[in-house]
Amino acid sequence: MENNRKIIRQSLSNRIVHWGIAISTILLIVSGFGNMPMYKRYNIVKLPFGEFLGSFINMLYLHYLSAAFLCFFVFYHLFVHYFAKEFDILPRKGDVTQSFLIIKAMITKSQEPPSDKYLAEQRIAYAFIGGNVLTLVITGFIKMLKNLDSINIPNSINTIVTNIHNAATMLLILGLIGHIAAFIFKENRKMIPGMFTGKLDEDYVKHRHSIWYENLTDDEIDVSNNVTKEEKKFETSSM
């Protein structure tokens, strides 16, 4: 019999943060490249609505506006989890080896090692993308200060900060490509609905996140099913 029960993996707050950061990052990349003299040279401005992209000042407005949203979501994310003491997604010792084993299992279609709420490679990807986003926020903030008439940033700092900002952008783009490329593996595709609804199939969680599954709290079981943890455990053991 098919099990339709769901496990709550991402709260509404997490989903808003994820998509808020995703959309503002895409806008920042678009406007960031618009601040490079690229769109005119590569004829992007000739595409429909492309003219807007050809204006450096429009791109700067869009960049700052998106940066404001990104900063809001990033700092909200950092502090809400810090205050609530939720650190599931931070990398742990042995994650690199564990990631290798998970990817190997996905390729060879063998048994994956047991995982917690997040897979080891998700924790590594989080650290990589998060580290780059933080670097971009800090360097972007300094670059922004430089454009204010009243603030004088030394030339050497400006040059270093600008080049770190550019390098971190490239690394972030690579990270985002890797993030999306993860869905090449069929095993990962079941996570996609969770990024919209916040819920995952119970069978999937049991199979892939067995450590987390064993320690689920009542809050993480979809209340719409009216099933408590005890009932879940009972049903699981009687299966």
């Binding site: 404001a68 700092f75 994310h77 502090f79 205050f83």
Partner: peptide, 14 residues
């Protein structure tokens, strides 16, 4: 606005 955004984020998080 971009400079204020982190503060707003922290307050909302709290």
């Amino acid at each position: 606005s971009a400079a204020i955004a982190p503060i707003a984020g922290i307050i909302t998080a709290g």
